[in-house]
């Protein structure tokens, strides 16, 4: 099932039980799967048209009235377009609004550079009180929805809207503030998010063939970061690689670097968009163009391990 289908089905299920939930779209309800909700909930599911700023502050008003609004758009328009409305009407005023952006990073594919959010995580992470979450697959999305609603405060849901390969098992236990250790390993930590998790798992297999045991962590919640899990892992492995579908500035690499540098500095290497804008293409092509690949993660893991080893030998190795 497509992620947007799961998202809408969960909303439907919870709107049935919880009359506080409201869904507001800005002319991308078809794209985000939320259009169908209007038939069943004509009062609580509506569209304000192509007016994202208005949508964000309308949601804040509704939240002040006791509702829990979900607002949806594409990632760039749900974040950078409206970051002042999110910062002031929603976060600063402490209103319980859930912000849903779809097509993160290069997954905007044929919509091209204007629609590719390379900065949304940086923006949202820097807004006080914001929780920032990116599910890795449909199972995680489904399990996260009740916790997102239960959490009293703004949440940014970064949603890949099409089909995702399954990463987690049906009986997996989800905790919004706990990163998932998907595979244990002792030589290098790979912290990945979103579409990069499957690449990280592929990289792990490649590394295994080279005699390297990588620990793969799915960092679904970028803020608050589960630094405990990440630090425990780097204490064991001694080096870390981050992999994200976002600019290397402001997102996962930055969050991990902050946590590691302050607590247990180890060599860090990163895979992500190298501070450039996106462009049109299919997902597979764009992964190659921007280096968001398993091969690149594996190469960076080798680099991180080499840096660790050279540190341990006091840099005396030739």
């Amino acid at each position: 099932m497509e992620m947007r289908g799961i998202f809408a089905a969960e909303l439907d299920r919870m709107m049935e039980q919880d009359e506080r939930i409201v869904v507001i779209d800005a002319d991308l309800a078809k794209a985000n799967g939320t259009l169908l909700l209007r038939e069943k909930y004509p009062d609580r599911a509506f569209d304000v048209g192509v007016a994202e700023q208005n949508m964000a502050s309308i949601a804040a008003g509704l939240a002040s009235y006791g509702f829990i609004p979900f607002i949806t758009s594409f990632c760039p328009f749900a974040t950078r377009r409206i970051c002042d409305q999110i910062a002031v009407s929603i976060a600063y005023a402490s209103q319980n609004v859930k912000i849903v952006g779809s097509d993160p990073g290069i997954s905007a594919e044929l919509n091209g550079g204007t629609h590719m959010s390379v900065e949304d995580l940086g923006i949202m992470r820097a807004i006080p009180s914001m929780t920032v979450f990116e599910p890795v697959d449909g199972i995680q999305l489904k399990k996260a929805m009740p916790q997102i609603i239960e959490h009293n405060g703004p949440v940014y849901l970064r949603l890949f809207r099409k089909k995702r390969p399954r990463i987690l098992a049906e009986d997996y236990e989800f905790n919004l503030s706990r990163a998932d250790i998907l595979q244990a390993g002792s030589d290098v930590t790979i912290a990945a998010s979103g579409i990069m998790v499957e690449e990280a798992l592929k990289a792990r297999a490649v590394l295994k063939g080279q005699g390297i045991e990588a620990e793969v962590i799915n960092v679904h919640t970028l803020k608050p970061l589960d630094s405990e899990t990440i630090l425990k892992s780097v204490v064991k492995t001694g080096c870390i690689v981050t992999a994200e579908n976002h600019n290397i500035i402001g997102g996962l690499r930055s969050a991990v670097a902050e946590a590691v540098a302050e607590n247990f500095p180890v060599p860090l290497r990163s895979v992500g968009i190298q501070d450039v804008f996106g462009e049109v293409g299919r997902l597979g092509e764009l992964k190659e163009i921007f280096g968001l690949t398993a091969e690149n993660i594996a190469a960076k893991a080798q680099e991180a391990i080499a840096a660790k080893n050279s540190q341990r030998t006091g840099g005396k190795q030739k």
Binding site: L110, G112, G113, T114, V280
Partner: peptide
Amino acid sequence: LNRAGTNLPSHCD
């Protein structure tokens, strides 16, 4: 049009 590397992306550039 709209292929990777094109000078003609879906939105004007």
